[in-house]
Design a protein around this nucleic acid. Sequence first.
DNA 1: CTGAAAGCGCTTACAG
DNA 2: CTGAAAGCGCTTACAG
Lengths: 346, 346
Amino acid sequence: MNTQKVTIADVAKRAGVSKGLVSFALNDRPGVSPETRTRILAVAGDLGWKPSLRARSLSTRRSFALGLVVARNPEVLGSDPFFPSFIAGVESILSDRGQALVLSVVPSEEAEIRSYRQLVDDGRVDGVFLTDLRHDDPRIPLLTELGLPAVTLGRPDGPSPFPAVSIDDTPGIAESVAYLARLGHRRIAHIAGSSTMLHGTRRRDAFEAALCTAGLPLGQTIETDFSVAAGSDATRRLLTREDAPTAIVYANDPMAIAGLGVAHELGIRVPDELSITGFDDIDFSRYVYPPLTTVSATPVVWGRAAATTLLALIETGAADDVNLPAARLIIRGSAAAPAHTRKSAT
Amino acid sequence: MNTQKVTIADVAKRAGVSKGLVSFALNDRPGVSPETRTRILAVAGDLGWKPSLRARSLSTRRSFALGLVVARNPEVLGSDPFFPSFIAGVESILSDRGQALVLSVVPSEEAEIRSYRQLVDDGRVDGVFLTDLRHDDPRIPLLTELGLPAVTLGRPDGPSPFPAVSIDDTPGIAESVAYLARLGHRRIAHIAGSSTMLHGTRRRDAFEAALCTAGLPLGQTIETDFSVAAGSDATRRLLTREDAPTAIVYANDPMAIAGLGVAHELGIRVPDELSITGFDDIDFSRYVYPPLTTVSATPVVWGRAAATTLLALIETGAADDVNLPAARLIIRGSAAAPAHTRKSAT
DNA sequence: CTGAAAGCGCTTACAG
DNA sequence: CTGAAAGCGCTTACAG
């Protein structure tokens, strides 16, 4: 209950020094003799002094907080565990360093821009995480103009003054396609994410490149917004066609799980009559039936790395890009040799 | 780029008044003539003055931010869309009121307590949301001691000085059981959430009461931690028993979806041979097959109400409890008459 | 209705 | 190595 009662002045008086010196001792700055420093710190401890963050903020013009503004629509936000995990990773770094996370969830791109401006106008944060990178992402020039440090998750497609923390998702898609091709599939489709998102396009490009590598004809691709609903619709369209694919590579797990539902509904057995692969390895993926063959993702690791990088950037003014281990294929039960291959093998 | 350059002193000088008066005008306090106020505000507008939140924080001892600390384990956090939606609801209120949300995700109960203490030591927030209420929740005495305003989601089982914003989930469970009983089920089991959580116990109690109302014998109940993995295990245990139930009422959708997977794996058809119901109506629930009969939840509405209440409490020092509309049963495809009933009906 | 001053609790040149 | 003072940009009694 005594909290916030004792101030730097109390410590100074009790230690018989000036407030300035207490501040120097606290911040480990040169100009205080070791003995004096020790004495000051001891007095501070005795008194239970907790330096006021608000006062420090005012004089240092720092907020000791990092920001994350999320502009996903509520549905895809809810069915995708990326953010909870990413945030858990971020927090594991921040909590030990006395930093806080300010989270903003906004419904539109306009609201997103307003949110960033508000954050800097209010001096709420010292830097932000840029997730879900888009093509020619408007946030990069915006933050540059605002002078707010940032770290991007993945490398932007335009010029960027910010360090990037990346996980290459190309190998995961490539492995998925190669695996399906090896099983004997020739009509492989892709249910892609939004083409406004960098990772939507990148996974799609990886899919097409992998098809090419495997010597397979170009497959059908349907673009979605990454939502469960869109994944469901796209699957239905694909499966009710004349030349329905025998395998579908999904750009994320939630859509793949929805696809599983559609297949069940249509009486198409997975993996016997249809193979599917996902992306992200969300918790659900191993508990649906059949368990989903998918690509691992490590959002917690990404969160830690991004937080570490952003903090370094803020403190030192510079930080290197970091490349995290690529996502890999995890083979479970949702893919198998296509029906005709099986028949001819019998 | 001019941001944060112009201060209250500039406005005062330009308007020919004292800083104090500018402050009064800004805060709509009595003691400024209408003309003067208008003139001051006009000057402020011209100059593009944005009052410094940091300076206001220091002198008012307020942070203009609200806190949410989440202590769920990463898995259940990720598969349950409650938090993203709840937060979206909270933000929709906060953003218009110049408030920010500081989010803390912690791995343990000790870390949780430390997090709250840190939040008040640093004066990061003016109040917090208490979610996932537990029995004899230690956070209530803790926050009382710390003097931090809070709002609870649901009513605690012990004494609490804080307003509660509640959604009664009892009717939803009661309706689920009544519906299954009406379909002809007599062996209905419950896969419950954690008994340390108030909503885990409450749903379980509602289940047992509903069974009683329906004149059915006490069903089997298995307690879990609400996770997908636990829901899967519990379902397997139930279905491989001699006296396997013909229907299962799950305490949340993620577990019900895992249950669907187990049933598929065991070759038990849903709903023909097994009926299941969920709780929460998460986005996935309508896209699995068969689509899940479940109970609606409105986390966004809950978020708005909780934010409104907490802000009222902080500003006026008091706020009333609020009761939101109860969750209701949503009938989809995962429940039907039990197999033997069907047979005898043929 | 208005002004001048002190205060919120730190940090940071500037002297010594 | 140390002290006294000014400053960060607001708010808030206190006088008039």
